[in-house]
Design a protein around this nucleic acid. Structure first.
Length: 382
DNA sequence: GTTGAGCGTT
């Protein structure tokens, strides 16, 4: 289990997942947290009822949630201890000094919020609020409904629903907060307006300039339909902090996993074992990309097209320890004879010969076998 | 049955 933590003094606004310690007391280790956020001393979060910051309990180098339970969807915000007065530089005569002292670790030039302090950071260039896109608004909702939902987190300076020429809502809109901490509190969280959930994000127009989102995303294909976003999050989080997981509903046997760091995505291309199933991971293509003459040919992993019949047999072997070994050795490229020989050396038996299995296999078969393998995996390992 | 819904007439 992880909690989501952000440092609102940082420009990048990134959320880092921090593990909850496994020793049953449900605490988060301060040192684990400090490994990601130098100099951190505590965490705070927005009390949604009163819209006031609430601090978590700190004792013996551990952080405890006041309610006893960490909300996986809440973004907890780092708190840094107040520098002692001796750290504060005296302002020399005629000297232009920084208004705020550098923290003891000297990492940040920016002002840090103290616990319980409601300082506005709107003048910090990195902390400025931006218009946020609100997606999924009911076509019946009005500006007032949107406003009511988000005012809980702080004062809004802007709220608009986009409409077509006839005044019909387009189902999305934009809001802007006065204070940056309000923005942090709502972003990437689920909210409800008129019984529909809506998502709040930094608009593409603000982010795509430097690095397009798809550069931080992988395309995961050949997934069993039973796989959940949480399963994927759990599996892929060992490679790096995850920003988002997208699984189409209804399931379409693929998903997208977005990381915070684009550098790791290329290391993931290839086949992976998730829940006893072999899946392929490839680069995400830009959204809405139009096919064009002269397009670079599809990526390497795609060109080496996996053999579906091989996969069927692989999944039929399900959770045998030989399975993952085989997978390591041949991926999905080997032919059926190779497979049979390989598994025979392990004394693994199948229900019928591999050849017979897919000579009469239809398209639907591999999906069934996939589901079955996944179910068996869950029985054994979950 | 192997690529994400929708991204702003300021």
């Amino acid at each position: 289990m992880f909690i989501r933590v952000a440092d609102d003094s940082k420009s990048n606004n990134e959320i880092v997942e921090i593990p909850i310690d496994g020793d049953m007391d449900g605490s988060v280790s301060l040192s684990t947290l400090a490994a990601q956020f130098q100099g951190v001393s505590a965490l705070k979060y927005r009390n949604t009822e009163t819209s006031v910051w609430r601090g978590v309990r700190v004792a013996d180098g551990k952080l405890y949630h006041p309610d006893g339970v960490w909300d996986p969807d809440t973004v907890y915000v780092t708190v840094y201890s107040k520098p002692v007065s001796s750290d504060i530089k005296r302002k020399g005569v005629g000297e232009q000094q920084e208004e705020y002292p550098i923290t003891s670790l000297g990492q940040s030039k920016s002002q840090r919020l103290e616990y319980g302090e409601e300082t506005s950071t709107e003048n910090e260039p990195d902390h400025r609020c931006v218009d946020l896109i609100v997606l999924g608004i009911s076509y019946r909702s009005l500006e007032a409904d949107v406003k009511k939902c988000f005012e809980v987190f702080g004062e809004l300076v802007f709220c608009e629903i986009k409409r077509d020429a006839n005044g019909q809502s387009r189902g999305f809109g934009f809001i802007r907060f006065k204070n940056y901490e309000s923005q942090l509190a709502v972003i990437n969280k689920r909210h409800f307006i008129d019984g529909r959930h809506v998502d709040v994000k930094i608009p593409d127009s603000k982010t795509s300039a430097h690095e397009p989102e798809y550069a931080r995303k992988v395309f995961v294909a050949r997934l069993p339909d039973s796989i959940t976003p949480d399963d994927l999050r759990q599996y892929f989080s060992k490679y790096g902090p995850i920003k988002d997981v997208y699984v189409p509903k209804p399931a379409r046997s693929f998903a997208f996993v977005t990381f915070h760091d684009s550098n790791i995505v290329r290391t993931l291309f290839g086949t992976h074992m998730i829940h006893g199933c072999s899946v392929t991971v490839g680069p995400a293509e830009p959204k809405n990309k139009l096919p064009a003459i002269g397009d670079y040919p599809t990526s390497t992993y795609k060109r080496a097209k996996p053999d579906h019949s091989s996969l069927r047999t692989l999944t039929a072997y399900s959770t045998s320890p030989a399975h993952s070994h085989y997978h390591q050795q041949y991926g999905q490229t080997a032919n059926t004879d190779m497979m049979q020989r390989f598994f025979q050396q392990y004394g693994t038996t199948t229900n019928g010969s591999a050849k017979a299995q897919f000579s009469n296999a239809q398209q639907s078969y591999w999906s069934n076998a996939h589901e079955e393998a996944s179910a068996i995996w869950q029985q054994h390992y979950r």
